[in-house]
């Protein structure tokens, strides 16, 4: 499978621009200062953006960098959220334990699903993620006595420390930043380089001695872990869970975010998540046809801007450098 718009080389271009880290740190500073001055609704909106950005980035780790056609990523998100919800409503365990357990349970599930999937390639891989993911959905949907079925679980009790909108905001922001830093480090590590190499050329990777199935499985588990972490954040924000969190159309939504922002750029999915979350809330309040709008956006993206918004911006910018010129020759 070739994914020509996934181009790591663009990151090289970005590295020579000195103001990028400065820009990011100042953005972070602004984000940290916002809660006292922002109305509650916008605070909630931003918090949701952070949570969704983590979810979208965790998918892009396997999809964009790993080249794995993960079509049902929402499962790990939903299972993370359900783990917190069930622990907090069915046991007397403390919140922090639930919050630690959730990503681990999601990672464990990713290990099981991934173990079957990495034996397959391309579309078959995608189909199997879809089938096994829907199996998990069906179990949660139907296991009424344990998960409350399609009613979901509402009014999940949270300790006072993590229940005010401001503290939830800071927790979301903090977790997002820490997780993104970790994921970025992983992408730049030998593990990440090898993952990208496998995406580009699995046969060759194998013949230089890489165990590609094991490597892809590890990446799959890692991305499941971070999706589970996003699930914890979701419970903090909404204090409720429902099976729709892990229905396949939720996964499709995350895919759209990644594509919208740009899968070749590390922060692309975050931007895509922000755009989609804000749009859905704005459009949703004015008209009934949000899905139509999302469909049209997606249609335009696919036909005219497959490298995504941030990818497009970087391309515009990258043209001016020597490396950008080389890239053009390469395509």
């Amino acid at each position: 499978m070739s994914m020509s718009w996934l181009d790591r080389s663009k990151e090289k271009t970005a590295r020579v621009i000195p103001f990028r880290p400065i820009l990011l740190v100042s953005l972070l500073g602004v984000a940290a200062l916002l809660p006292p001055i922002l109305p509650a609704y916008y605070l909630y909106l931003l918090t949701t953006v952070y949570m969704t950005a983590l979810l979208a980035t965790s998918l892009n780790f396997v999809l964009g960098y790993g080249g794995l056609l993960q079509l049902h990523h929402a499962v790990f998100f939903g299972v993370g959220a359900y783990t917190v919800a069930l622990v907090l409503t069915k046991t007397t365990w403390p919140f922090w334990l639930a919050a630690v357990l959730a990503p681990l349970v999601a990672a464990l599930l990713a290990a099981v699903i991934g173990w079957f999937c990495v034996r397959l390639r391309g579309l078959y891989f995608g189909m199997l993620t879809l089938a096994l993911g829907q199996l998990v959905w069906a179990i949660i949907y139907k296991w009424r006595s344990f998960t409350s079925g399609d009613d979901g679980i509402h009014g999940i009790p949270l300790p006072g420390l993590v229940s005010s909108p401001t503290s939830v905001y800071y927790i979301n922001l903090g977790v997002l930043v820490v997780c993104l830093l970790i994921l970025y480090a992983v992408i730049k590590s030998p593990f990440g380089l090898t993952l990208v190499a496998i995406r580009d050329n699995p046969v060759r990777s194998q013949s230089v001695g890489v165990n590609i199935k094991r490597h892809q499985l590890a990446a799959f588990v890692l991305s499941g872990f971070f999706a589970g972490a996003a699930g914890v954040l979701f419970v903090l924000i909404e204090q409720s869970v429902s099976p729709s969190l892990l229905y396949w159309s939720k996964s499709a939504e995350i895919l759209i975010m990644d594509l919208l922002g740009g899968m070749a750029v590390f922060l692309g999915p975050s931007l895509g998540a922000a755009i989609l979350v804000v749009l859905s809330m704005v459009v949703g309040t004015y008209m009934d046809y949000w899905l139509l709008v999302m469909g049209l956006i997606l249609l335009l993206l696919v036909l005219f801007l497959p490298q995504g918004v941030l990818g497009y911006l970087q391309e515009l910018f990258g043209r001016k450098t020597v490396q950008g010129g080389e890239r053009d020759a390469a395509n």
Binding site: R8, T194, V196, S205, G209, H215
Partner: peptide
């Protein structure tokens, strides 16, 4: 049969890392 989107250096590095069993290092 190379890794078309990596740099020349990275192409070879992938092989060296695999030989020295460093491909799994995460951080």
């Amino acid at each position: 049969n190379i890794f078309p989107r990596l740099t020349v250096f990275e192409n070879v590095q992938v092989a060296v890392l695999a030989r020295l069993k460093q491909s799994g290092r995460l951080f």
